[in-house]
Design a protein around this nucleic acid. Structure first.
Lengths: 339, 339
DNA sequence: GTGCCAAATGTAAACGATTACAGAGACGGC
DNA sequence: GCCGTCTCTGTAATCGTTTACATTTGGCAC
């Protein structure tokens, strides 16, 4: 592999000059610059990232630590992060932390000297402590986690409001027995959606019935199972709120198999508004969350902090959600098909 | 940030000893090792990746360069890659190359000294040359690209066979006018699926009719549009093969809106077998491709090459596909619902 | 010719680790 | 007591850059 020394020798200059050509270009004669560039080109030289990082203490890389890498949620999130990072000249070091604690700390350690900052997704309630195991002063943005006492910014989505909006919408359509298929246990988003569901029921003076709260884990299969269990009941709910679209779609298929019509016999709504939602039958009413925007915002915030490392005020940002009404909830659709 | 020197000083040893504790642990007295470990722990030390890479010439990072980061295909692929890489102690440097040429080369340059090897996905037909712009001898694995003359391994999926199998299956159900909704232009997978479709038609002595080959781009919307265009025709196909599941699902929704029954009036099949496929209505017949396995294989191959850099024989690997029959094609289902 | 200034370039010390090599004890055999 | 050997530890060179500082060069005013 050709180094800066080699280029310098072949171009008849010192390494400092070559270096200057590749960085702030002032103070290099045009003729010299050209000669260096041509020589480098000919030799196929490009600067060695690690060596550069060592002396500048900048890697132009941000670490992204996610709980797992499954489904459209994550591809959207990464897309948003990558887009922003790339636009601002940063690389992405990606990792998923399967077994929470030990592996999380290990992952953090192994990123020392490889990244300038970190985007950390800690959806588990007990992972809140994660931020604390970080070296103090290291730039970190937390994603979708419970409010943490760690000294860093955090981003989340309006789970509570979105869930409440869904419930209010269903109630406005006349539903009184509204079930929920919960998200993964220990998951913060899931907990907030459940809390929003309960709060809205209370606000509407509807009964909060534990029997209407079915367990789930965000998978299509879980939605399918939950719907089946509902059908076995003597008294069925008239509406079902699945804590994400995947489970809603699983529930739809279970209802279809059982000959239960949606939305006539039971209304179904989801959460997230994944691209697929508008293509299932019936088209799924959901809560729109711009996941890639979430990634974008988190990345912007992190890169801002990197650029200007003054002690800025820390904040928790909440991304708003929008109700998207389609056929599955049985509402009259204004102006034809929902987009 | 605390360095190895600091740890050495505080532990009363030389930097060499600290280094030895962190690497091959032989030749350090147990008592010394413990003292060093404790000191490091107390100071919150962890080795600096860039410095380490500089001298060892190993980054334990592999670069992953993809055309974009959209949809379940990519999240599955990345999942497979990450899983394998992590298990073998490697990090992932992820990047998407939007505008092909210039950005591709730029991305490659900027990875010099940051990665030990590269997984490069070049689905575009004209990107075949990409491999050639790489420094010779740099370990690279190509993914889903056209056969390249570059000196590196490549992995792909059995697009041709999968498409042919789909067509044969439809023909065996009595279909004679089988349409295809093509994938993105210039995309190698798309081209191969089209080729497989045509070959199977020829083999079955069915007419290859350009009017039955509709353009698409792998998006749900494209499938929707293509299906609408079919419905406008005087003579409609009796079966539609969409080059991926997303487009098949878009087509399903268009048919539903038009009151055309699937599979009674028209059979629909897809490709990829994304998780969603079994939950749409009717459940979608598709061609199963284990995307995460693809990522896994490519990564294993790359890491093997890194471990043993002898000039191994280069190969092109093709991942087999399986036909998954569900309701949308109208075939009699053996043994109840397809898994 | 001399002195001064600015621009262009070179010299060499970092950066934080790894590792070849050397040195220091300890021990045992003679 | 001497020497060889083995185990543990230290010294210092090295990796490929950046960059503070020094040096050279040429032009220009005097």
């Amino acid at each position: 592999m050709v180094t800066i020394k080699e280029v310098a020798r072949r171009a008849g200059v010192s390494v400092a000059t070559v270096s200057r050509v590749y960085n702030h270009s002032h103070s290099v004669r045009e003729e010299t610059r050209l000669r260096v560039r041509r020589t480098a080109q000919r030799l196929g030289y490009s600067p060695h990232g690690a060596a550069r990082s060592l002396v500048t203490n900048r890697t132009y890389t941000i670490g992204v630590l996610l709980p797992d890498l499954y489904g459209e949620f994550f591809s959207e999130l990464i897309r948003g992060i990558d887009q922003t990072a790339q636009a601002r000249g940063y690389h992405l070091l990606l990792s998923s932390a399967r077994s929470q604690r030990e592996s999380l700390e290990a992952a953090l350690r192994s990123m020392r000297g490889r990244v300038d900052g970190l985007i950390l997704m800690t959806p588990d309630l007990d992972a809140a402590a994660a931020g604390r195991s970080l070296p103090a002063g290291f730039p970190v943005v937390l994603l979708n986690g419970p409010p943490s006492d760690a000294a860093c910014d955090s981003f989340g989505i309006a789970n509570f409001d979105g869930a409440a909006a869904i419930v209010r919408h269903l109630a406005s359509l006349g539903h009184r027995r509204i079930a929920i298929i919960c998200g993964a246990e220990q998951n913060f988003d899931a907990a907030e959606r459940l809390r929003g569901y309960r709060a809205a029921l209370a606000e509407l003076a509807l009964e909060v019935d534990p029997a209407l709260e079915l367990p789930g884990d965000f998978s299509e299969a879980a939605g399918h199972v939950a719907a089946r269990r509902m059908l076995e009941r003597a008294v069925r709910p008239t509406a079902v709120f699945a804590a994400n679209d995947g489970m809603a779609i699983g529930a739809l298929s279970a209802f279809r198999e059982a000959g239960v019509r949606v939305p006539e016999d039971v209304a179904v709504v989801g959460f997230d508004d994944i691209p697929m939602a508008r293509y299932v039958d019936p088209a799924l009413t959901s809560v729109r969350v711009d996941i890639s925007e979430l990634g974008k915002n988190a990345t912007d915030r992190l890169l801002d902090a990197l650029a200007e490392p003054s002690p800025r005020t820390l904040r928790h940002h909440t991304l708003p959600t929008t109700l998207v009404v389609r056929r599955s909830c049985g509402a009259p659709l204004s102006g034809g098909a929902a987009r």
